[in-house]
Every structure is written in C-alpha cells, then in structure tokens.
Design a protein around this nucleic acid. Structure first.
Lengths: 234, 234
DNA sequence: CAGGAAAAGTGCGTGCACGCAAATTTGCGC
DNA sequence: GCGCAAATTTGCGTGCACGCACTTTTCCTG
C-alpha cells in the first residue's frame, strides 16, 4: 500500500482549475482497485467458491470490515473488476457521436461498443461469471449503473422539458440491455420463471452479443424518435 | 397449522377439469400467508427493526429455516403482505380491457388500477415501508414481479413475431413503474446519485400516484404503438 | 390400505452484511 | 511543523442467508 502516490499541485485542464484528487481520494481508488483485482485473481485461481471475503481483504491489505465499506457483497468486487468504469465510458461514447444522428442509433451503437469491447480480460472471465448464478446475477445488476449517465446524456438532447422522459428511457435502455445480456450468457435450459407463458417454445437461438443488443433496443427506438420529435416541436 | 383445509374432489371450471390444489399446495399457501401476515403485524406492532426472522417464524408456527424457504430476506415477507397477488391481478386487469383500445392505454390504466387500489391496508402500512430504506427498496423490487404477466399479455397482442419485443416492453413498463413509485414515496431530499446531472434543480413536485404513473408510462406509448402497427402490417 | 417416491420442514454449521464506537489517518489553516 | 476537524479504517457483536443432510408429511399406485 505504498505505491507511487505523490504529486499534488493545481493543474489547468481545459479552461477550469482542476484540483487533482488529494491523497485521500487517490488512496481510496487505489484500495477499491486493489480489492477488485484481488477478488478477480483469487476467483480465477481457486474458483469462485473457494474465495472468502476475508481472503480478498487480506490480499488487498485491508481489514475484512473495510471490504464491506467498498462492496456490499462478495460478488460485487469480482464483477466490478470487469465492469470497472463502464459508466463513464458509455457517457463519453454517446457524447462523442455526432448530434445529427437519431438519438436511438447513437445510444444503440454506444452501448454495443461498450459491451463488445473486451475489457482486456473476457476469455476466461466470462466462463467464471457464467459458472455461478450469484455471479451472473451480480453482473446483470451492474446494468443499472448505466442509468445515471444515460439519463444525463438523453436529458441533454431533450432539453429541460424532457428530464422526466429521459429518466424513463434510460431505465428502459438499461432493462433492455439486461435482457440482451441474459439471453446472451444463458447457460442452457430456459430455467427462468416461464409463468403463464413458457410452454410455447424456445424463442431466441442466442445470436452474437451485438445482435442481441440491437434486437433488444430496437423496440424502444420509436419512443426515442417521438421524444426527439416532441423536442423539435417545442 | 390445523385450519379448515379439507375438501378435495374433481371440479369443473369453465370447460376443463381443474384438479383443485391438494393438501400440499394448500398448506404451502397457508404457510406463506401466515408468514406474510405475521411479518406485517409484528412490524407494525413493534417497529420494523424490532422484528427478527426468528420472531416471524415463531408467530407463523414454523422453524426459522423454513422462513427462508419462502422468503429470501427479512424484508420480503413484510412487503409481500402488501403486494400479495398483484401480479395475477394485473394480468387479469389487462385481459379484461377491450381489445380495441391502444395497448399502451390498456396497460397504463390496468397498472394504475392495481397500484391505486388500497390493498385493504395502506394508511399506516405506507408509513412503515417508507420508514426504512431497506423496506422501501424491497418494495420497489417487487415491481420486477409484474414483468412475466405483462410479457404474456403483450405477447398475446403482438403475436409470435413480437415475443422478443414483448419482453423488452414489459421490462420497460416495470422500470417506469418503479420510477413512478420512487418519486411518489420519496421521503424528501433527492438523496440519490445525482451523478453529473443533479445540480440543475428539482424536477418533480411529487404529484398523485396516478399522475406519476401516467407521466412515467407516457414516454413508452410510441413504442407500443409502433409494435402494434407492425403487428397489423404483418 | 400398504408401501415407496417425492416434497416440504427442520437443525446445524459457515460465511457474510452491517451498525456502532473507538482508533487512525488526512486535509488545511496558522 | 502544529493541531484540530473531518474522513477513513478497524474490531466487535448481532442477525441473517443458505447449503447440506436428515426427518416428517403428502401423494400416488397397485
């Protein structure tokens, strides 16, 4: 825990003074990352069930109690190692896209870009995540994290009047993404609650992830179009 | 656990033979309900923090271990007492509506009807739920339960080709409902993650629940319309 | 109505989540 | 550098979630 954490002096970035994060903040992020990576590494080495919170904490050089100050469950740390800064990158990806294109398309492509990009892991990590239901669920839950950035970006396009709409659409996108991911890393049998529905037959042959995402987001496009249209009509 | 649970003989309902649930199933439901009600009653009497799982189990006449065979968390039982058979009622409510009206309207009205109807409790119960964050969250999580029935009903309207779409739209509705409920029983300050957004200003003056629901569902209407239209155009 | 399979209930043991109240570390003005 | 307020870490204690193996109950069939 004594890495190169020096440096500290006002810095000009863009046109505003950006006081760089102090020791406090830097250490906090360092600890968070240490926990993430320790969790993932141990899970890969021993198998996810052979890793206790105590082990992760020890490997990261903090107390077990501190672990829970950073992550609310044992799975979160492992999953976080994969999804790390996805939220920030999605926001950036959408912001980058030209303002001319349909909002629906911009979002779809940005999302695909993020979830397709191999976070420099992937080959073995995906097997790990799918291997345990609790990990799979924790992973799917991270889609909720893209809501805030999406809301911000959508709201910006729709103007103040659409703030409400933006929130709903962002949540819908997150839900769609979740569904796409579910379908993608489905181990096999449609174990899920088929309810008063299932008996029919299998629905999706589990295409590639980009295809699944496109298919899941397509039904929402009309809602985005309508929102943008309303924006133009004041 | 020795209530009036007799009766058993084939019954004709509609035009198919409906074997009534055996003792097994009836007892299971009885236990589930006993747990729900015990949980709610104790929480109201003593306050939610003064009720341990052990207490609920004892009041319902089962072992603590059995409690967790029915509910995965302490809060679920309490919340379930309020949301009991909402899922089934939503499905029925939508099915009842005339096939002529817009799908979006049918769903909106059905949802409002369900969430408006005072489940024969409400006055004090709402205060209970809002009093603790964990209870509030558990309550909001129950909105996920309306997805399966919604999916089934929507899929029926859209035909086989729309099964995929149905799933996404149902999830979007659930997300919108969740947002509406969040806004409705918001205790006060926008504590939530404002992210790169908040600083602007307050957005919603927290109207009535039906209004919140309508507002949250409205942005999705175009998506429903488009789906229905596509259905007609084969 | 006997008997055995299937399902629900139970007890136990383990690891985990988290409130609380010290102890420790960091930020910052003097 | 000094010292204090604020933030963070830590230990402890409690209750909880759940896998597993075992007992009890319900169901069905001959």
């Amino acid at each position: 825990m004594h890495a190169n954490l020096r440096a500290r002096s006002p810095v000009w970035k863009g046109d505003t003074v950006t006081t760089p994060p102090g020791l406090r903040e830097r250490k906090k992020q360092a600890t968070r990352e240490a926990l993430r990576e320790a969790a993932l590494r141990l899970a890969l080495e021993r198998g996810p069930d052979q890793v206790r919170v105590e082990d992760i904490a020890e490997a990261a050089g903090v107390s077990p109690r501190t672990y829970n100050n950073y992550f609310a469950s044992r799975e979160q740390a492992i999953v976080a190692a994969v999804t790390a800064d996805r939220e920030a990158r999605i926001a950036a990806a959408i912001a980058t896209r030209p303002a001319g294109v349909r909002l629906a398309d911009a979002i779809t492509e940005a999302v695909i870009q993020q979830y397709t990009d191999p976070g420099e892991h992937d080959p073995e990590v995906l097997l790990l995540i799918t291997s345990r239901t609790t990990l799979r669920d924790a992973f799917l839950d991270t889609t909720a994290g893209i809501e805030p950035p999406l809301t911000a970006v959508i709201a910006e396009r729709l103007g103040d009047a659409g703030a409400h709409t933006a929130r709903v659409l962002a949540a819908s996108v997150a839900a769609a993404v979740r569904i796409a991911l579910e379908g993608w890393l489905r181990p096999d049998g449609t174990a899920g609650t088929a309810g008063s529905f299932g008996a029919g037959g299998l629905v999706v042959p589990s295409g590639s992830l980009p295809d699944q995402l496109r298919a899941a987001l397509a039904p929402l496009a009309p809602a985005f179009d309508a929102a943008e249209r309303r924006r133009l009509e004041h």
